[in-house]
Simulated assay, not measured.
Amino acid sequence: MDAVEEPMSAFGAVTAQTNKLSRQYQALLDQSTPHTLYRWVGTGVLLVFFFARVFFAQGWYIVAYALGIYLLNLFLAFLQPKFDPSNEALDNDMEDGSLGSLPTKQDEEFRPFIRRLPEFKFWHAATRAISISFVCTWFEVFNVPVFWPVLVMYWIMLFVLTMRKQIQHMIKYRYVPFTVGKARYTKNSS
């Protein structure tokens, strides 16, 4: 009877420790939420360490390329609205025959810009990806020999083409994903 209870208690102990670590990690994430600038500076420093590791080790270009593609994908999701106006335009076109866009006049419905990928999730996913990539640079199995200038040129072309498409989409449906020039209200501004 003791032999049966021992694996269950060992499993229970592992589960309890995993839950405890998960709660502590979530508490750290919750504490870091309001410190946007510091979070991004830390991520930037981690990215510099990663690039320095790749540069000085002269390898792991595939890992760097995969990280670049993943970060580009995250950035595009960060720039896009949660509810794509092009899909709504197609729906409106089918219903009433007119193409819709975001409101531009006083009498149109106001819909605030909501990102498909919120800033905190963008930061968290980017930091986690950079950390994993940095760890991968310490294992020789990930050091696949490639001609790195081709990867750099391909990534630059991919970046330019996808950003051009994203900017055209932003212009066509008239949305700005950044809050540049947003009015700030203080106690005395009545």
Rank of each mutant, 00 (worst) to 15 (best):
N188G: 14
I62R: 04
V14A: 13
M170A: 11
A52S: 09
K172I: 09
W40T: 12
W155C: 00
P7R: 08
Q17I: 14
G59W: 05
Q80F: 04
A89H: 03
V141G: 00
F134P: 02
K121Y: 11
I132S: 04
S131I: 10
N19W: 09
P103M: 08
V146N: 00
V176I: 15
M170F: 02
F56V: 08
L37Y: 12
I130A: 03
A89Y: 01
A66D: 02
S86D: 06
H169L: 02
V48F: 08
G97M: 12
E119V: 15
M94I: 15
F56E: 04
L37V: 13
R111M: 07
Q166W: 09
D84I: 04
Y38F: 08
H35P: 01
S189P: 00
L99Q: 03
G42R: 03
F49K: 00
T18E: 02
L28H: 07
D107P: 01
F83N: 04
F78G: 00
V160D: 01
K20D: 12
Y65G: 05
D107V: 14
M153P: 00
I114Y: 06
I114R: 02
L28I: 10
V48Q: 03
Y70C: 08
F142N: 05
L47V: 06
E119C: 02
P112V: 09
G44A: 14
Y70S: 07
T179D: 13
S189L: 12
M157G: 08
S9P: 03
E109C: 04
I167Y: 13
A126E: 02
A77C: 10
T162E: 05
F178D: 01
G12N: 15
S189R: 09
A77G: 07
F75E: 02
M1Y: 07
P34M: 07
R184V: 15
A77S: 08
N19G: 10
K182C: 03
Q58E: 13
E140G: 11
E6Y: 15
I132L: 10
N188V: 09
Y185R: 15
S101C: 10
S133R: 05
P7C: 05
N73K: 05
F120Q: 05
P103A: 15
Q80W: 06
G12F: 07
L21W: 11
D84A: 10
G97F: 06
K172E: 06
A64P: 03
V4E: 11
L21I: 13
F75W: 07
R23G: 03
E95Q: 09
E6C: 03
M94H: 09
I114S: 03
Q106A: 13
F78M: 11
L76E: 03
V4Y: 06
K82T: 04
